[in-house]
């Protein structure tokens, strides 16, 4: 009986903690929006999100279990799926076709650890504000601090692949995001340095 009570107590306090934690998070973001919303911040934010929301990024951030591909972001052909580790299925891994670099002969894109973003980072269907919120949410972003995020966005070769996306199967160059890599890195760093502010939705 005693044991049961303590169990209930533990469970209840856990739930409470979660609520407090998430409230706390939301509070913080809201306060940042209020205090740091300047024209410059909006501009930097938009720059960052113009890349993040580009299909080169979004195609591998599905909210479901199916990667997208191509300029029209169609569902990846051949029934390719996320799999348990975001690296595909038993005999149909991402690495079955995607290697560590673009293959200019086949048009298959490649970069180190080619894989889907975790489902918690499924951005398809979200607007840029929601994506940014999710990106900063440690429960969704793999428990990354802002510094970690900056590092991931500016150093990870899989992320940086979007600036050199190679050619498609017909040899046509893939569309690149609106920023060049250097401008992206600068923008990300500025945004993070400013506290990664997310402007209010218009």
């Amino acid at each position: 009986m005693k044991l049961k009570k303590s169990l209930i107590f533990t469970a209840l306090s856990f739930v409470l903690l979660v609520i407090v934690y998430s409230l706390d998070g939301r509070e913080k973001i809201v306060s940042e929006r209020v205090h740091t919303e300047t024209d410059q911040n909006v501009e930097v934010f938009d720059k960052v999100m113009s890349v993040v929301t580009h299909k080169r990024c979004m195609n591998c951030h599905p909210a479901d279990d199916f990667p997208r591909q191509g300029e029209d972001s169609h569902v990846h052909r051949f029934g390719v799926q996320r799999g348990v580790d975001n690296h595909g299925l038993a005999a149909l891994q991402c690495g079955s076709c995607h290697q560590e670099a673009n293959n200019l002969l086949s048009g298959v894109p490649g970069a180190p650890h080619w894989s889907l973003a975790p489902k918690s980072m499924g951005w398809q269907g979200l607007n840029k504000f929601e994506i940014a919120t999710a990106m900063l949410d440690r429960t969704k972003n793999g428990n990354r601090s802002k510094a970690d995020i900056a590092h991931h966005l500016t150093e990870d070769p899989l992320v940086l692949w979007v600036f050199e996306p190679g050619v498609d199967n017909e040899g046509t160059e893939r569309e690149k995001p609106p920023l060049i890599k250097e401008d992206w890195i600068t923008a990300v760093k500025e945004w993070i340095a400013a506290g990664a502010p997310i402007p209010a939705e218009e």
Binding site: L92, Q93, S96, C97, Q99, E100, N103
Partner: peptide, 13 residues
Amino acid sequence: GIAVRSCSYAVRF
């Protein structure tokens, strides 16, 4: 041990 499509696998890898 992983099934790989060798037409799109640069030999250096």
